[in-house]
Protein backbone atom coordinates (compact mmCIF):
# COMPACT_ATOMS: atom_id res chain seq x y z
CA UNK A 1 0.00 0.00 0.00
CA UNK A 2 1.26 3.44 -0.87
CA UNK A 3 -0.07 6.96 -0.50
CA UNK A 4 2.68 8.70 -2.41
CA UNK A 5 3.91 10.45 0.73
CA UNK A 6 4.74 8.60 3.93
CA UNK A 7 4.46 5.32 2.05
CA UNK A 8 5.98 5.69 -1.39
CA UNK A 9 5.89 3.45 -4.43
CA UNK A 10 9.52 2.61 -3.77
CA UNK A 11 8.90 1.72 -0.09
CA UNK A 12 5.24 0.75 0.36
CA UNK A 13 3.63 -0.74 3.43
CA UNK A 14 3.25 -4.47 3.03
CA UNK A 15 -0.19 -5.87 3.80
CA UNK A 16 -1.82 -9.27 3.45
CA UNK A 17 -4.35 -8.82 0.65
CA UNK A 18 -7.02 -10.63 2.65
CA UNK A 19 -6.92 -7.71 5.08
CA UNK A 20 -7.74 -5.23 2.34
CA UNK A 21 -11.02 -4.08 0.83
CA UNK A 22 -10.86 -2.06 -2.38
CA UNK A 23 -14.22 -0.44 -1.76
CA UNK A 24 -15.06 -1.01 -5.42
CA UNK A 25 -13.22 2.04 -6.70
CA UNK A 26 -10.35 1.80 -9.12
CA UNK A 27 -8.24 4.52 -10.69
CA UNK A 28 -7.92 3.29 -14.24
CA UNK A 29 -4.76 5.21 -15.09
CA UNK A 30 -2.82 3.83 -12.13
CA UNK A 31 -4.44 0.39 -12.28
CA UNK A 32 -3.60 -0.04 -15.96
CA UNK A 33 -0.01 1.07 -15.43
CA UNK A 34 0.42 -1.49 -12.65
CA UNK A 35 -1.06 -4.26 -14.79
CA UNK A 36 1.24 -3.32 -17.68
CA UNK A 37 4.28 -3.21 -15.42
CA UNK A 38 4.82 0.49 -16.06
CA UNK A 39 6.24 2.89 -13.53
CA UNK A 40 3.73 4.57 -11.24
CA UNK A 41 4.85 7.83 -9.69
CA UNK A 42 4.18 8.98 -6.14
CA UNK A 43 2.58 12.16 -7.43
CA UNK A 44 0.02 10.10 -9.36
CA UNK A 45 -1.00 8.18 -6.26
CA UNK A 46 -1.11 11.28 -4.07
CA UNK A 47 -3.21 13.15 -6.63
CA UNK A 48 -5.61 10.25 -7.14
CA UNK A 49 -6.13 9.90 -3.38
CA UNK A 50 -7.10 13.58 -3.08
CA UNK A 51 -10.24 12.77 -5.06
CA UNK A 52 -11.29 10.22 -2.47
CA UNK A 53 -10.30 12.31 0.53
CA UNK A 54 -12.62 15.08 -0.65
CA UNK A 55 -9.90 17.73 -0.81
Amino acid sequence: MANGEEKTVAAPKRKNVKHLDSGGDRNQVIGDKLLEGKQVFDSEIKSALRVYSGK
Partner: peptide, 8 residues
Protein backbone atom coordinates in the same frame (compact mmCIF):
# COMPACT_ATOMS: atom_id res chain seq x y z
CA UNK B 1 1.83 20.65 0.28
CA UNK B 2 2.69 19.91 -3.34
CA UNK B 3 1.34 19.37 -6.81
CA UNK B 4 -2.07 17.87 -7.51
CA UNK B 5 -2.39 16.28 -10.95
CA UNK B 6 -5.95 16.95 -12.08
CA UNK B 7 -5.84 14.61 -15.10
CA UNK B 8 -5.07 11.42 -13.19
Amino acid sequence: DGIEILTI
